[in-house]
Amino acid sequence: MQKTAIRKLTKPERRAQLIETSKEILRECGADALTLGHLAERAGVSKPIAYEHFGTREGLLIALSREIEERHTEKLRKALQDAPTDLSSVAGVISAVYVGCAVENGAEWQAMSGALRGNAEMDLVQQELADEYVALVGAALAPFSRLSVDDLRLRCTGIAGAAEAIAREFVRGRTTEDHAAANLAVLIAKAVG
């Protein structure tokens, strides 16, 4: 009987595998269960491999947060490329993508955010990611606004906060996906129109 050679994963492939396994642990067991030791065991690798990729539990949670936010931003960029060129449609795209990402990652995101509250490094990462999101939304809404650049940025910051709060209501089961997206779209349009 001939043995089949098992291909060793490249470092980026291993990191992606560890990120996906981390999401499974978050979904199934919650943030308290997500440790580098548990991750290594679940992924079938040694603890040093998990530590090599993330350093600490906080490093792992920050990597997960970045991955989720970067995926969300990319989805929004793509959706905006194909959006009709009126305020209502653009607001609808922004809200649908945001709520769609809450559907996809809501419980995981809430668990990670809670686990990292007060972590200085995570605060910096969240601010960086929020600034990127606000800039993307601002650029999409600028053609429909007579606001100054600074006022538009502040309103988009408020939109991001409202989007997070509405998404949290959805994750908690207090509204439907469609209802959350529709109300967020109205808020966006009124904020800049």
Rank of each mutant, 00 (worst) to 15 (best):
P48H: 13
L39P: 13
G92S: 08
A43Q: 05
A96L: 06
T85C: 08
A107T: 09
K47T: 12
T73I: 13
N119A: 06
E104P: 10
L129T: 05
E121S: 08
D123P: 03
A63F: 02
M122S: 11
H53M: 12
A50E: 01
I68S: 02
L39F: 08
L124A: 09
A79M: 08
L60D: 07
A83Y: 01
V45Q: 05
F54P: 13
R77D: 09
E69G: 04
S89W: 13
M122K: 08
V97D: 00
A63T: 03
S65T: 14
D82Q: 14
M112L: 13
Q126W: 01
G114T: 03
N105L: 11
S65L: 09
M122D: 07
E58K: 04
P84I: 07
R117S: 09
S46Y: 13
A102W: 00
G106L: 07
T85N: 11
Q126C: 08
E41N: 13
G59P: 08
Q110W: 03
P84A: 15
W109Y: 15
G100F: 03
E67A: 10
E74K: 09
N119T: 05
W109E: 12
R77Y: 06
I94W: 07
R66V: 11
S95E: 03
E52R: 13
G55M: 07
L39R: 01
Q127Y: 05
K47A: 13
R57Y: 03
E58A: 10
E52G: 11
I68N: 01
C101V: 01
D123H: 06
L124V: 03
F54Q: 06
L124M: 07
T85K: 14
A91I: 06
E52T: 09
M112P: 00
F54H: 04
G114D: 04
P48M: 12
G92C: 06
D123W: 02
K78H: 15
A43I: 10
L60F: 08
P84S: 14
P84T: 10
A79S: 14
N105D: 15
T56G: 07
V93D: 00
V93C: 05
A50Y: 06
V45L: 11
V45Y: 06
G118E: 00
E67P: 05
V99E: 02
V103G: 12
L60V: 08
E52D: 15
M112W: 02
S88R: 11
K75R: 15
Q126T: 03
V90G: 03
R77H: 14
S46H: 14
S89I: 09
A83P: 01
G44M: 08
G55P: 06
C101R: 02
L87E: 10
G59Q: 02
V97C: 01
M122F: 05
Q81K: 14
L64S: 00
T56K: 05
D82Y: 01
I49V: 15
R42W: 05
I94M: 02
N105S: 15
L129D: 06
E69S: 12
Q127A: 06
Q110A: 09
A91M: 11
V90T: 07
A120T: 11
E74W: 12
E108G: 12
N119Y: 01
S95R: 00
M112R: 01
T85Q: 10
A63C: 12
V99L: 13
L76F: 07
Q126K: 07
L129M: 11
L87I: 14
P48E: 08
T85D: 10
A40C: 09
R71V: 10
S88T: 15
A111F: 00
M122T: 11
S88I: 14
